[in-house]
Amino acid sequence: MTPALTLLMLLTALVSLHVGSTDIALLDGLWQWLHGTDSAAAIVIGDIRLPRTLLALTVGAALGMSGAALQGLLRNPLADPGLTGASQGAALGAASVFYFGLFPAAGAAAPALAGLIGAGIAMSLMLLLAGPSRQAMVIMAGLAISTLTGSLLAAVLNFAPNPFALSELVFWLLGSVSERGLDHLVILLPALLIGGGLIWSQRRLLLGLSLGEQVAQSMGLSYTRGSRLIILGAALLVGASVAVAGAIGFVGLLVPHLVRPLVRNRPDRILIPAALAGAILVCLADIIVRGMPPGRELKLGVLTSLIGAPLFIWLVWQERKKWL
């Protein structure tokens, strides 16, 4: 399954590099960019399309994997990566940059950096509140911290210094991978590797948890330590992707549902396919965004939510049928 998804992801990436408002020979542009030639083709491919494609892929992979991990940990197919409080924390951190002008030295990557710090703080507060947690406490604590950071974000919006700052902030929050450079990848890629690594190291726990905490512990797996590592990894993934690209809704929630049947519903085998499928979906959505008629750009996060929400309603309907 993984090789097929990898191939599909590479194909999507190629299409994404190929599609755009100007018609440019992909290989020539890439070749010229690699050799540092200062041509239009090199700039379009290397400085615009390549970062955009890579960011779409990494953001999608991070969201897909964190969703699969959290659903496995909480044993709840409706668990969303936003549950950890990390998304809201990242949004608040990034918004503070627009408001207070934090980290001027970081340049365009400042919102991402502040977002990562915001996600980290929100996560730590959540873990502190949840204590040596039962799964229900993680959800409650995540909700509480999300509400807190959400209200602080509203306050930041409320007191925005001027209409420009406000609209910049709101558009940023809608989620997009455009107008970002390879320096954003420097933040996102390590987060993807470390967060993904933490989750991957606990895949046996995710499998054991299928039959409940008690069974997992009786099989010699450490629930307390392992669950913290998974939450930390997921927060890193979600925090970094929100910090870089704003809120890209529903990917983390829906992608695991799409790939679960392909891996016999096993929560340990779903991680990599979920990351690949997330990458493919976000990249595809971004291709659609770019294919829209020129004018006001439809933000990527808005598109994924528009597609995701009906799918989510359908999922809830399916779950409901199980109980009737």
Partner: peptide, 26 residues
């Protein structure tokens, strides 16, 4: 030492073979 708990339920719609394979986790 293996524990067969009083109540057991699988959170996911696992195949029987995969449930039994869980016993090999240790």
């Amino acid at each position: 030492i293996a524990l067969l708990p009083q109540r057991c339920q699988s959170a996911w719609a696992l195949k029987v073979a995969d449930v039994i394979a869980l016993g090999r986790l240790p």
